[in-house]
Amino acid sequence: MFLFQPGFSQVKEYIIKHTTPVREADFNTTNDADLLPIEKAIGNKRIVMLGELYHGDGEELRLKSRLVRYLHEHMGFNVIAFESDFFSLNHGWEAFKKNKISLDSLLYLSVFPVWTQCMQANDLFQYINNNAGKLRITGFDNRGISGYGMRHLKRSIDGFLREQQVSFTTHPSYNTFITAIGRTPWILNGNNREALDSLLKLMPIVIEQVSDPFYLHVLKGLLINYTLALHYRYNKERKDHPQHDFQMAENLKWLASDKFANEKIIIWAHNSHVEKGPLENVTHRSYNSMGYYFSQDPQLAAQTYTIGLTCYEGTGGLTISDVTEKVTKPHKKSIESWIHSMGYPYAFTDLTFQQEEDLYYMKTYINTASELPWKKFYDGILYVREAKPCLKK
């Protein structure tokens, strides 16, 4: 303990020295000087990953939303990539550009309701609508079929495969395959084992015959969805599987390296997906994260600044559930406790110059914490003193 304490004191000293207050989370504030330290920390990086501790913390969403506005208006970030339906937010954006759907409808149908139905995120989505010609929207999550996907996925894939004259369209099982695609939401819920087995058998054949990068990512994502459905619905394997985060990383790599190769991109997701630390010694998940897979590309890693979010106290609650969850008291040797001692309602800590081996506690979810070398997971931390449940619109 005598040898450990001085090192620990140095970690605490670093956190306090490199933490700056964020005055407020009000989206419409006219004074953004308190966000200058975040701009300085990000520097010339063109990709910013914004995590969140809990999908149901309205205060985190307010703070994130304000930062998105700042990144767009002051730093030129012009793409927002949501942890939401990859197919819908890419195919749907093209439909929006052709005036086939309103942006408001596309967002409502495609972005997960934990955000679109949270009143504290309302300013963000209104801002996106108001800046449709300047901000571009995309998504990278392969899991979950949105309302837009339910309407267009089957017809879009069928039209593409026929237009490209993919040989499988003449296969005797093609109609069975494309019909099952249209029933994907029900199949994923475990309602048709025969159709699931058919898709698991036929999808790899189709993938081998497709070269278009967008549809290749769509089809690979669907295959992972069907594989996970087999694990969760039939084999009853409740453990986490790495395919989801792996495919999200593949989708995001394509977006960042090809589709938006020359753009500045904001990634909107959960902490557990954006964190870039390796699985080694991690107790809060049993798989490598999207951020880890993404950062294995040295060029992309060098272009990315990853921000985790955390909070000290309060209560969170999802808009899709009436259940609220109280934030447990942080460990006394945690970044939350140290920042709380400074009295800030919101704050930012830059971890850029911290030693990679420095260990301390931080929350990994609303009511759990882990002692890890957090510099390996995030480049910076946004802090909220009091979490507040999302309010339903």
Score class of each variant (00 low, 15 high):
L216M: 09
E194K: 14
Q243W: 12
L255D: 09
T176C: 11
K236S: 10
I205A: 10
H241I: 04
L228Q: 10
V166G: 04
E163R: 13
Y226G: 00
R238N: 15
M203N: 14
M248R: 07
L252N: 10
Q164F: 09
P185G: 02
H241E: 01
I181C: 03
L202N: 13
N191E: 11
Q243C: 06
V218T: 04
F214R: 00
Q247I: 13
R233P: 03
S167V: 09
E250I: 11
Y234S: 01
I178A: 02
S173V: 03
L222C: 06
P213N: 05
Q165L: 09
K253V: 09
H217Y: 05
G159R: 06
K253W: 00
Q243N: 10
H217G: 10
E237V: 04
L161D: 03
I157W: 03
N191G: 04
D240P: 03
K220S: 12
S198Q: 04
I157Q: 07
S173W: 03
V210Q: 01
L199V: 04
L228I: 12
T179M: 06
E163Q: 13
R193Q: 11
Y174T: 02
M203C: 12
K236G: 06
W186T: 08
R183C: 12
D158Q: 08
K239Y: 14
P185H: 04
L219V: 00
R193F: 05
L199P: 02
S156L: 09
L196E: 07
R233G: 09
Q243P: 00
N189V: 04
P172G: 01
Y234P: 05
F214V: 01
N235S: 14
N189S: 13
F160G: 05
D197G: 02
T170R: 15
D158V: 04
H231I: 01
T179I: 05
Y232P: 06
H241T: 03
K239W: 13
K253L: 11
N192Y: 11
E208F: 07
L202F: 11
G159M: 05
L216R: 12
Y215C: 08
N191I: 00
M203D: 12
D212H: 14
V218H: 02
N235T: 11
N251W: 08
G221T: 04
L228A: 08
N191W: 02
S198H: 02
G182C: 01
L222F: 12
K201I: 07
H241D: 05
T227D: 09
R233K: 14
S173Q: 13
F160L: 07
L252H: 11
I205G: 04
N251H: 08
P213D: 08
N235G: 05
D240L: 07
L252P: 11
L219E: 01
M248G: 09
L161H: 01
V218L: 04
L222W: 09
H231M: 10
